[in-house]
Design a binder for these strands. Structure first.
Lengths: 242, 242
DNA sequence: CAGAGTTCTTGACTTGGATCAAGGATGCGC
DNA sequence: GCGCATCCTTGATCCAAGTCAAGAACTCTG
């Protein structure tokens, strides 16, 4: 299991030191961030902020998973992103929050008061440069997800999601290693733009087809990686290029 | 109509001077960009770059509209963004292009050789800071679009699209001002994750319902703005906050 | 380990949007 | 201003995924 980061440790020992907004900072710059940081923890399922709230803090995910989502008037909800360790929450320069943020698992955030953080960004180009890189990467990921939401079938969506989980856990890919679904069926549905029944049916179908097998409802392994990849509907060229 | 920017004019006279990647630059910094810029033009329908191509240039749209899109193996295509004047194309730090880029209308780009541009970014924090802002805004827009693609009905998608066009053209909003659809029915379909037949039917339905009226196939005005807004399916609170 | 609340699965039925098909409008080149 | 290509509209039919419903499998609490 993940070792929980001890809050008292310095930034130098932080598990996301080399991937988060601080990645490009040298020791002096890190000290400036360290001076204004605080940690907060949330337990699984807890709401963190709501759309429309005043944006008081910008944060990095230290460990755990959070979700960004939007709910329409009648209750339809769409997740627009999963936030993993090192991912950034908040938009420096904005007064209000644009999406609901929820803790999917138990979660630790490294938090900066927004105004102070904005001042720091002006002084420390390494921070804005890093946020630029991260935002451009996120933008790419969001656009890939738009293709999934707009054009893929339920089967392709599920296959893409499974493949994403597997790729995230283990490079290089190997058959039969064990993976955990971090989300409930309903959360998967909200991420993929489906209903929970369709998610359940497609997972059962992929099990029946010998592509994946479940040890319990949340744990699976891939039994036919080729078939999984073919089921994603992705263009075979481009997939390799990245 | 839009006045076409004369290439020979300096950056100081550029129509996107205060909105593009150079927006935060002072006169000296602008000179550095000016030294490496070149202009290129494309005519409507022309392909600019393809996914997988080597990323040689980063560019800003000076005038016209470009589209970012991705096509799956079997030909299904999804637009993942419209690029309007001042929008940025390319990802400094990446070797390859991630999405196809096409000129939707006649188009002028202000272009920088990628390597040189990356060096400049390291020297001039105002540029990376501006790209950070722009990328975070784009990310928000992409996420809003994900909600549309994942959860909205055909009618809501079309209403949201129309409302977007109208808002873009004219603030404040007024009934009966004239607007132009910059895209064909098929392009609208690819942007909204629909088929061209469904787009056509929904536009006809909105005409029948007295929400919009067409003077020709590409030009319309809004006859019932309230009904249009209600048809978007958007949450009434949040919509106002932004 | 009993009972209550989740979460998940599966079946039966419905439906919104896709697909297939035909014809009309518009624009462009010669 | 005729011929051809593109773009758009409308109708008929189909099907993937949504909805509604019931019950099974977990899991948490006392």
């Amino acid at each position: 299991m993940t070792v929980v980061f001890n809050e008292r440790e310095s930034c130098a020992a932080c598990p996301i030191r080399h991937r988060a907004v601080c990645a490009r900072c040298d020791t002096d710059e890190l000290a400036l961030l360290e001076a204004i940081k605080t940690y907060t923890t949330y337990s699984a399922g807890q709401a963190i902020i709501w759309r429309g709230d005043e944006l008081v803090y910008c944060s990095s995910v230290v460990n755990g998973i959070a979700a960004l989502s939007r709910t329409l008037e009648d209750g339809r909800t769409q997740m627009v992103g999963l936030l993993l360790p090192s991912d950034f929450i908040g938009r420096p320069g904005r007064e209000h929050v644009d999406f609901d943020v929820t803790a999917v698992t138990d979660l630790t955030l490294c938090r900066f008061e927004r105004r102070a953080f904005e001042k720091l960004i002006e002084q420390v180009p390494h921070i804005s440069h890093r946020i630029m890189e991260m935002a451009l990467d996120e933008l790419n990921a969001a656009r890939e997800w738009m293709v999934l939401l707009g054009r893929k079938t339920a089967r392709e969506k599920i296959a893409t999601f499974i493949e994403m989980i597997v790729r995230r856990d283990s490079v290089p890919l190997q058959t039969n290693s064990h993976h955990v679904l971090p989300l409930t069926r309903e959360e998967i549905a909200n991420l993929l733009g489906l209903t929970l029944e369709t998610v359940s049916r497609q997972l059962s179908a992929m099990k029946r087809d010998g592509i994946i097998s479940f040890s319990d409802r949340r744990s699976f392994s891939v039994t036919d990686f080729d078939a999984l990849y073919r089921a994603t509907g992705d263009d075979s060229d481009g997939g390799m290029i990245v």
